[in-house]
Design a protein around this nucleic acid. Structure first.
Lengths: 257, 257
DNA sequence: TGTTGTGAATTCATTCACAGCG
DNA sequence: CGCTGTGAATGAATTCACAACA
């Protein structure tokens, strides 16, 4: 979630809802695919299917951008690609730095979709002196000492943090102090930043835990129970085959170390 | 956001809002940290700060789980850790397979937080025969041919897709056919899955694009420009702090009709 | 005709504010 | 007292359903 400040509610003009903004990249990807296949126009229904949303939502989303469709026909693919790109700020190139070139940082640096549209890996930064100079994805890794200079020399405003959790806040503080105002955080920590700085996080274990929640829910179905059972621990994890490992119904307490 | 169809509306067992579920892992992490420091109790205010949310929200979230606090005192850390773990289904161990052992897949396999609490990397799978047998993160990579057998032998219900976009849907189909009902997708594609299967996606370029949107918005706040058609191109990386508000230079919304 | 664009209705999420209890 | 738990109020997002219109 964007930690960013909520925007002014006042004037009615450019109020694109956050949920809509989050879907624009999806639409853009689907449109780009169509564009590559030289499809000239697309209906809300088709595009919605390709993007994995429903068409009413898509039309509502587009309505916040303006009236870019043609009734009875659909949307012009090229035109929409341009409009959405512009709205997302992808008609310019954003230099990005990646801090923390471990396994993950290297994977990110090598990730193709990165450089593709609107973004450019301006620098890779790592705290390990042994890495300095070593090229990753064709870009030489630089040492953390030079972080501030790198940021300002390259006019970087977007930073990616792929360090261990322990280093993340410190790196974040330095990035922000150096002028970065948007951060994508892969470290499993809550970052605190001043107002005006946006943070988004990507967190593997959170995603897995959310999946586990639903998975558990699936396993414990069939029986038509449903009482909110107030007591702390009861609920025999009555499950059947399919998915369900340890039938360890209730555990007294404490699992961490 | 969970893509894909989620839970059936049928048996309306336990109504924990999705937004709350998505925050439980955050609370759990904060609580685990407190637990490690042997902090016995914590107030909603403190815990909320540690998790980066506000305290009213946190209390409301916990209220869906039950009444686990003590008025005038706060929450017992150990007890809450257990309750949330149980709610998330982390009192059992979920075997997970990772498909696609490239840069990213390897990074995921090596990721510590993975194996830590509630999850276990049961197998690594890759389509490249040259990788077969090679250990990554101490686990030998297996070939895609054996995917179905691996899934069923290990009772896997959660799969992670870290393949190139082109292979993702196919891998997904095979995982689902083999019995996987939760998928974490790192490939930049919309996966389509049957009802009852949950998909969550992690997508670097979507996150960056969302950041770029806000970044652009910050940059274009002094001048009253930003019209519908003018091509965007300039931007002076002028990093002043506290951008966000703006006296507002609003644009006629193109075609209110 | 076929499809967009959008008010109105609905559902979901957050925040407020305070009663209730330890 | 202090802090939780929660109804009630507000706000955001989604969905419905249909008028507008190329």
């Amino acid at each position: 979630m964007a930690t960013g400040r909520t925007h002014r509610p006042a004037t009615r003009s450019r109020g694109i809802p956050e949920a809509t903004v989050a879907r624009l990249p999806l639409y853009l990807r689907a449109l780009t695919a169509l564009s590559e296949r030289s499809v000239p126009t697309v209906s809300s229904e088709e595009l919605a299917a390709a993007a994995g949303v429903n068409s009413a939502k898509l039309r509502k989303d587009f309505s916040y951008l303006g009236s870019y469709g043609t009734r009875g026909v659909g949307y012009d693919v090229e035109y929409l690609v341009y409009q959405i790109s512009r709205e997302l700020g992808l008609t310019q190139d954003w230099p990005v730095v990646i801090v923390g070139i471990g396994n993950l940082g290297a994977a990110l640096a090598n990730y193709g979709g990165f450089a593709s549209r609107g973004f450019r890996v301006a620098a890779l930064i790592d705290a390990d002196p042994a890495m300095a100079g070593k090229p990753v994805a064709g870009i030489p890794v630089q040492h953390t000492d030079d972080l501030e200079k790198i940021i300002s020399d390259n006019g970087v405003s977007i930073g990616v943090i792929a360090t261990p959790a322990g280093a993340a806040q410190q790196v974040c503080d330095r990035l922000v102090a150096a002028g970065v105002t948007s951060i994508l955080n892969f470290a499993p920590t809550v970052l605190s930043v001043p107002d005006g700085v946006d943070v988004r996080k990507v967190d593997l274990s959170i995603e897995l835990q959310i999946l586990a929640f639903h998975e558990q829910r699936k396993a414990g179905e069939e029986s038509a129970e449903g009482g909110p059972l107030p007591a702390a621990a009861s609920r025999g994890a009555a499950a059947d085959d399919s998915a369900d490992q340890g039938p360890d119904g209730d555990v007294p307490a404490v699992m961490p170390a």
